[in-house]
C-alpha cells in the first residue's frame, strides 16, 4: 500500500524544496509546524494574508519551512518586528513562532510589553527547556536542578512559568499544550488565528539531543511517553500556579480566553474622542490620498 508518487497533504503548506529540515530525529518541532499549518488551514484564513516571524534558535528556523510570508529575524526581536508588520498592515494575521530562550530571555521585555499593549498577534512559544541550537546551555525555563552545558552541577536558577508570565502581563488568550497534544494544538491555533488580541501558546516539546541527553531522559519517544503520563488537561487551572518541573504534572489547557480592546482599537478610540473635541481636526482615512 505504498504510493510514493502521491503528495503529502502538508506539502503545499511547506517549503518542500528545503526539506529535510534541520531538526533532529524525534524533535517535536516538525509536529508543531504541521499542527500550526493545519490550524491556519482549518481557520479558513487566506494563507496569502498570514505572516510568520521567528527569532533565532531551533524554533527560529520554523519561518524558513513554512510556505507563508515568513521572516527570520534577530535573536529575541521577533515580537517587535511582528508588531511593526501587524500595525502597518492590519489585514495581516501575524504569528510569532519562537523558542523559550528567544521569547523569554533575550526577548522577555518585548513579550511582556506586547502582551500589555495587547497587539493583535499570536505568539507560539516552543518550550524545550534548553538552548538547543547552541549546544544545550541553560535557558530561563530549565528546571531547578536540571543539567545543561552551562549548569554542570545542576541548574540553580528558578525557572520561568511561561503561561504565568504571559497571563500576568495581560495576554488575552493563554494556553499550554505539549507536542503530543497535536489535535488540541491544531484547534488552539485555529482559535488563536481568529481571535483578536495578544494570544500566547506554550508548547512543551522534547529535545532529545541535548536536554534529554544531559538529564538521562532517553529519546524523544521516551519523553512523549512521559508527557502522556504526566499531562493533565485542566482549563480552569490558574496559570500562575502551574509551573513545570523535571517531574510532576504538566497542566495543559486554555487557561485564559478574554476579550480586551486591542492596541489598534484603543488608538482608534483615542482619535475619535479627539475628533469630537476639535472640529477642525480631520482624519484622512485613505492612505493613498495622502502625499
Amino acid at each position: 500500500m505504498q504510493n510514493n508518487a502521491a503528495h503529502h497533504p502538508m506539502e503545499k503548506y511547506l517549503r518542500m524544496d528545503r526539506m529535510p529540515h534541520i531538526w533532529c530525529s524525534s524533535c517535536g518541532l516538525g509536529t508543531i509546524v504541521n499542527s500550526f499549518m493545519k490550524g491556519i488551514k482549518n481557520a479558513g484564513i487566506d494563507t496569502n494574508k498570514v505572516a510568520v516571524v521567528s527569532g533565532i534558535g531551533c524554533t527560529g528556523r520554523v519561518a524558513g519551512y513554512i510556505k507563508l510570508d515568513s521572516y527570520h529575524t534577530t535573536h529575541g526581536r521577533a515580537i517587535p518586528f511582528a508588531s511593526g508588520l501587524k500595525l502597518a498592515n492590519r489585514d495581516l494575521t501575524v504569528a510569532v513562532i519562537s523558542g523559550d530562550g528567544d521569547l523569554f530571555a533575550i526577548g522577555g521585555n518585548h513579550l511582556i510589553h506586547a502582551a500589555r499593549r495587547n497587539v493583535d498577534m499570536n505568539v507560539i512559544c516552543v518550550n524545550n527547556f534548553i538552548y538547543g541550537m547552541t549546544g544545550g546551555q541553560n535557558a530561563p525555563t530549565t528546571p531547578l536542578g536540571a543539567y545543561s552545558s552551562t549548569a554542570p552541577y545542576g541548574n540553580y536558577e528558578q525557572p520561568f512559568n511561561l503561561v504565568g508570565v504571559a497571563a500576568a502581563a495581560g495576554a488575552s488568550y493563554v494556553a499550554r499544550w505539549t507536542a503530543l497534544h497535536f489535535h488540541r494544538l491544531t484547534d488552539t491555533i485555529k482559535e488563536m488565528a481568529k481571535k483578536k488580541g495578544f494570544c500566547f501558546l506554550e508548547v512543551v516539546s522534547p529535545c532529545s539531543t541535548v536536554f534529554a541527553r544531559k538529564n538521562k531522559g532517553g529519546t524523544g519517544l521516551d519523553i512523549l511517553r512521559e508527557y502522556k503520563d504526566r499531562s493533565i488537561i485542566d482549563h480552569e487551572a490558574d496559570p500562575q500556579k502551574i509551573p513545570l518541573g523535571m517531574n510532576g504534572e504538566i497542566i495543559c489547557g486554555v487557561f485564559i480566553n478574554e476579550d480586551r480592546p486591542t492596541f489598534w482599537e484603543n488608538v482608534q478610540k483615542g482619535i475619535e474622542k479627539r475628533v469630537v473635541k476639535t472640529k477642525n481636526y480631520k482624519v484622512i482615512k485613505n492612505r493613498e490620498s495622502v502625499v
Binding site: 516571524v53 521572516y71 529575524t73 534577530t74 526581536r77 515580537i79 517587535p80 518586528f81 511582528a82 508588531s83 511593526g84 508588520l85 501587524k86 500595525l87 502597518a88 521585555n109 518585548h110 510589553h113 499593549r117 492596541f263 488608538v267 483615542g270 482619535i271 479627539r274 481636526y281 480631520k282 482624519v283 484622512i284 482615512k285 485613505n286 492612505r287 495622502v290
Partner: peptide, 24 residues
C-alpha cells in the same frame, strides 16, 4: 494619527528599530 499613520512608543530602542523593519 491625523494621517491614518501608526505611532507606537515601544519598550526600548531595540524594539522600535525592529518594528520599523516589520512595518517596512
Amino acid at each position: 494619527p491625523q494621517l491614518d499613520g501608526v505611532f507606537v512608543q515601544f519598550e526600548d530602542e531595540i524594539a522600535s528599530m525592529a518594528s520599523i523593519l516589520g512595518a517596512s
